[in-house]
Design a binder for these strands. Structure first.
Lengths: 231, 231
DNA sequence: ATTCCCGATTGAAATAAATCAATTTTTTTA
DNA sequence: TAAAAAAATTGATTTATTTCAATCGGGAAT
């Protein structure tokens, strides 16, 4: 991990995320004092599940895969985080242990904010806290959706959900799927790599998707939605 | 659902939950103006997944089962909520749709707080917001644990986790398991009722638990923890 | 260019758990 | 109290999906 401290540029100029507009000058100063810019190369870990979390990460540039591990070799990929979003915000409270691991899917630029600074600002600035609460709500909501999906659907549905998620507008046209190996796609769907490979072929045969190398093009989104709904 | 409005008693006297101590008189007044007391009989629904959520529920007395549904007949039970805890707080933001259903395991007394009142107080009172954030952190953390469990463990581990959770100190000695049917226990473990029944028998034979009618006594908690860890 | 290695692919076998079907027990209702 | 309904139990069967084993292919290193 290469740490490149950047004290010259102005914090507020860099960060135009909505929630930072809410800070007073005092709070900006507090955060400026406690943040550090860091680069992560593709494949490097931003957080590691179970390790002590003393800071929160805010993504400035790049894509990050968030996943949970079973300790052994199995992972389950939860989401792809992009610029303007936090990683590790959960660890602010309670045990200060990261609940999940995160690795860079592309070269990624983040800044680290001391937990203490975030906590202080949350306590002092209701509007900022409100945005943090909003973040949690969304995260938790999406966890509910994920959990329900995992509990009630089977392979077809899981893979359909994965393809829909990874090809959604959320990533502003970036081709996230092409950044992933078959194994990683399988880990998003929560199925074995072999199952993912076979099922992708089946989807291709049914003209739901087109496969070219690592690229996966969605040919029939409606049908994917249908498969997702059926479960 | 029987709605019993109770405007006589004093809000603050009733509610000694930590987060309400943080409110200013103004805020208490705001909340007092927008809350309604309601009784739910055992088995009644406090929230129904997918319905519009205009208020948040705060449990004053009783036990509530929170679960997600698949639309059909299958449920997955997430947690048991007790007095002093919120239900439906998630719906404050975003779509205002309950992400989960909740039903009373015992006769339950709650009060309903208008979403708008909660939002206003969060925005104005950083310390209160901080507590709400804490609530979300805990909820999300436990979702991560649940999700990891569901993804990586199998039946034994699921049932062990369920028994450990339901017999934990969290419920102050209340015998939660006895309130549940076999089907409901299975729904906590995320396995079929038949599997739960068979596995409970096996645990009994291995002297990990004792079964008497609906009562389940934990004889060997360490072994359950071991089974939970093994997965 | 050739070898090596890792990821992708494919089919066959194994397996965990669900479903099904039948019976017993418990609870509710009349 | 008897009858009916619901829940629990049990064993047999089915099924979805994983695991295993073997092969293929493309890029990196030599």
């Amino acid at each position: 991990m290469k740490t490149i401290v950047d004290t010259d540029r102005d914090f507020v100029c860099e960060i135009d995320a909505p929630c930072f507009q809410l800070l007073t000058e005092e709070e900006v100063a507090l955060m400026r004092g406690s943040r550090t810019q860091v680069f992560f190369r593709k494949g490097e870990n931003l957080t590691k599940q179970g390790t002590f979390a003393s800071y929160v990460l805010f993504v400035i540039e790049g894509l990050v895969k968030v996943y949970v591990e079973d300790g052994g070799s199995r992972n389950f990929n939860l989401q792809v985080v992009r610029k303007g979003e936090f990683v590790g915000l959960l660890a602010i409270f309670g045990e200060s242990i990261y609940s999940y691991s995160a690795t860079a899917l592309t070269d990624t630029r983040v800044f680290l904010v001391e937990k203490a600074a975030i906590i202080k600002i949350i306590q002092n600035n209701g509007m900022f806290a409100y945005h943090i609460v909003e973040h949690y709500c969304k995260q938790t909501s999406s966890m509910f959706v994920t959990l329900r999906g995992m509990m009630f659907k089977q392979m077809n549905g899981h893979l359909a959900d994965t393809l829909l998620y990874l090809s959604s507008g959320r990533f502003e046209g970036e081709d996230v799927i092409s950044l992933l190996s078959r194994k990683e796609i399988a880990e998003f769907a929560g199925i074995s790599t072999e199952s993912a490979v076979k099922l992708l072929k089946i989807f291709e045969k049914e003209e739901i998707i087109r496969l070219e190398e690592k690229k996966v093009s969605i040919l029939n989104r409606d049908l994917l939605v249908e498969i997702s709904k059926r479960g």
